[in-house]
Amino acid sequence: MEMPPGPMPDKSMNMMMQMSFYWGKDATILFYGWPGNKLGMYVLALFFVFLLAFAIEVLSILPDVKPTSTKPMLGALTQTIIYTIRMGFGYLVMLSVMSFNLGIFIAALAGHFVGFFLVKSRALAVPKPTETTSRTAVIPKV
C-alpha cells in the first residue's frame, strides 16, 4: 500500500492524548510540559483552575451593572470587556478539563460551586423592597 503524500510521522512525536478520565499528577494542562510531573506544580495547576472557575462566576454578576445615563458607550464598553474576560476564562477552564485529569475536573467543578454559592448567597442577602415597605400607612388622627 502506498503512503499518502505529506510529512512523515516522526517517532519522536509519539504523543498520545488521554481519552478517558484518569487520576494522577502526570498531566499536561494548557501548555506543553505544564505542570510537569512534580506534585507541587500539579497542586498549583489545581489551584489555578479553581481560581479561573471561581472568577467566571464572580464576573458573571458584573455585567448586570447598569451603564450610566451620561456615558452609555463607556458602560457598554465596560460590560463588553468583562464579558470577553469571562469567556476567555471559560475557554481556559474548558481546555484544562479536556486534559481528562479527574483532579482538574474536580477543581473546576469546585471553583464553579464556590463561586456560584458566594455570588448567589450575597444576592439573596440583599433585601428587596416589597409593597409593605414601599408604602406608608396613613393613620387618621381622631
Rank of each mutant, 00 (worst) to 15 (best):
I106E: 11
V142C: 07
Q79K: 06
K128V: 14
G6A: 05
L124H: 10
S134A: 08
Y42T: 05
K120R: 11
I81Q: 10
L39K: 06
H112W: 11
D10L: 05
F89G: 02
F113L: 15
F116V: 03
P127M: 08
L109V: 12
V65K: 01
L124E: 12
L62R: 01
F54S: 01
I82H: 01
S69T: 00
A110L: 12
L118W: 12
P4Y: 04
R86G: 04
I56D: 01
K120G: 05
P9C: 09
T133P: 10
G115A: 10
R86F: 05
V138E: 15
G75H: 06
V49W: 14
I106G: 07
G88D: 02
K66R: 07
T80V: 06
P35A: 02
F105P: 05
K66Y: 00
R135Y: 07
K141A: 13
S96R: 00
F21W: 04
I139S: 14
T84C: 13
V126W: 15
V126C: 08
S20M: 04
V43D: 11
K128R: 13
G111C: 12
P5I: 00
S121H: 03
I29E: 04
M19F: 02
K141H: 13
G75R: 05
K71V: 08
L74D: 12
Q79S: 12
G103F: 04
I29D: 04
I56Q: 03
G75Y: 11
T80I: 07
T130M: 15
I85L: 02
N101I: 02
A110D: 09
S96W: 01
L102S: 11
V93C: 01
Y42K: 06
I139R: 13
Q18P: 11
A108K: 11
L118G: 15
A76M: 15
G36R: 02
P5N: 01
G36M: 03
P129H: 00
L51Q: 09
L39S: 08
G75N: 12
W34M: 10
A53R: 03
L39I: 06
K128W: 13
V142D: 15
Q18M: 10
V97A: 05
N37H: 06
F116L: 04
I106K: 07
T133Y: 06
I81Y: 08
M17H: 12
M19S: 05
M94N: 00
V43M: 09
V49N: 13
M94T: 01
T68C: 00
I139C: 09
L59N: 06
Q79C: 14
V138M: 14
I139H: 12
L44Q: 06
P7K: 00
W34N: 07
S134I: 13
A55I: 08
A125G: 13
G103H: 03
G75A: 04
G36S: 04
L124A: 08
M94R: 01
